[in-house]
Amino acid sequence: MSFVEVDEVSRVFHKRSLFSKSQGVQALKNVSLSIQQGETYALVGESGSGKSTLARIVVGVDNASSGQVSIAGHQISTSMPKENRRDIQMVFQSPYASLNPRWRVHDLVAEPLRAFGITQGRKATVQRVTELLEQVGLQADDARKFPHQFSGGQRQRISIARALSSNPKFIVCDEPTSALDVSVQAQVLNLLKDLQSELGLTYLFITHDLAVVKTMAHQIGVLKQGVLIEEQSADDLFASPQHQYTKDLLAAAPVLSVA
């Protein structure tokens, strides 16, 4: 069995209304995929494809309507035991909304440490936060600052430090660089790659940017309107896309060709 198993997951959202019968919107239809340990699975899709819904189900903050997800042998759901959550973390799209503006960097990074009781005592926590900040290319005294004192790229580093703090095995990256400038994007993507090889992390990388996918992914799935329409290894998908939609996406992507 693979490290991450998504098995026949569907998700229906019910629009509740007082006066009309409830209508279901199917955001995901029987999505199955698996991710090997230490690899990056890129999920490509446009807005409304259901990729964020799948991310929320995979990290256990939303439940599937049917089907199941397991990571490292544990069943994933909103009611899963807290200790199983340690292995799963997430890095978000917005460097602004993903950090509570009222919290200092130290508290943001230390929150998972406290939640899982990873470090004992203030001193150990400070030391671990310092290590984490340095690991993502920030400095120890950045811990005292607030998020608004950092640039977008630096905030993404803070998010990554926070995600790493619970020593996860699996990280969902939800468009982690789509709000960043190109030169900063390269820094963050390289950091994620370095961390993957250093710590043996497994990534589910959600994006709409095919050039980013090309540099990050081992395996690629294309999601369209809740259906996984194509799944191939990275090399095969770019060389011979099977589905028309994938071909259209590749054709439309404004990728820089230097040659």
Binding site: V182, S183, Q185, A186, A211, K214, H218
Partner: peptide
């Protein structure tokens, strides 16, 4: 040059390390 070099292209793959300009643009 740095900007162009750090832009991901279709020539890259998983083993590529992107060129990165050190530091940040000053405020």
């Amino acid at each position: 040059q740095g900007l162009i070099a750090s832009t991901p292209t279709m020539d890259a793959n998983v083993d590529t390390t992107l060129y990165q300009i050190p530091g940040n643009m000053p405020p």
